[in-house]
Amino acid sequence: MPKFLRLIIAKSVMLLEGAIVYSNLIALLSLGLTITYITTSVPNFAHGTIAVFGSYLALIFLYFLNIHPYIAIPIVFLLCGLVGTLCYSLVLRPLIKRGASVVILMIATLALDLILLGFIGSLSDTIERITSKSAKKFIFAIYDFEISGISGILFVSTASMISILVILWLLLFKTKFGIALRASMENPALAEVMGIDVEKTRIFSWFLSSSLAGLAGTLLPFKQEIVPLTGSLIIVSIFSASIVGGLASIAGAIFGGYLIGMSESLATYGLSMIFGPEILLYSKVIPLTALIIVLLLMPQGIVEGLRKWIKFFST
């Protein structure tokens, strides 16, 4: 094989690898966001920061207890889930009980985002002071393993995504609690009449959503550099993914996650070939553009939108 061909293949494998990893993580995040949106109808603006909180928890386990981030996944998963549960039961549920509007609830999640950011920031300063290792900016890539030239994060993130999907499917369609969960997602009032404890399903959805964010947050430093403010930027990709897929659909969230993740990685790379490498800094313009196009053409998301369009043209 000629040398340049091998180089091109190696390059595109690397590119595709990065794109798949990123898409896996965005899909995990938008899945979590959509779950809480469906059950409590609040877009959670703190979602990105909860993920970064997960990254910092993984960093703490690595620096202080010498636990590898991959091994720390279950602990971070549970701890972040706990954070989400606390956010819901201490802040959002009392507000909902007082009859707060959606806007007030959104502002409350913004406030939670800020509190969490302050907490992460002080954590990062403190870690840096104690260990004198970098914590305001860090990356896990050096701790990753490799199988025949492909970095481990590809396998780990894909395996996590697949196992989450299988578990979610089993939970939603094979258990009694799953039926209750789906019922309270579709029609909370009717579910309540049928004797389902809707409150329990809501708490569970916040736990699940935040723990998924924690999982994505543990894996994210293998792909990109983390700073305390990462959460407030990545939220753009998460929201775009959820809305592009359709804010009210779980399948849409996964579809949107892969669509946005892929297009963000690949389109920015393509543009950087034309306009030079500085384009890579502006990667978030791509999800924003996708978001605006979808909102203008089919605000209910691509899945629903296409169905409607097909119906419209076939009649």
């Binding site: 920031g121 002080s122 300063d125």
Partner: peptide
């Protein structure tokens, strides 16, 4: 004797103030 910048305390304080307002003085 806090080992970090005050801006983070400011964030926590004003975020909590917001929640306080939403709860007790909507």
């Amino acid at each position: 004797m806090i080992p970090f910048q005050t801006v983070w305390i400011e964030y926590i304080a004003f975020g909590s103030l917001m929640l306080f307002v939403l709860f007790y003085r909507p």
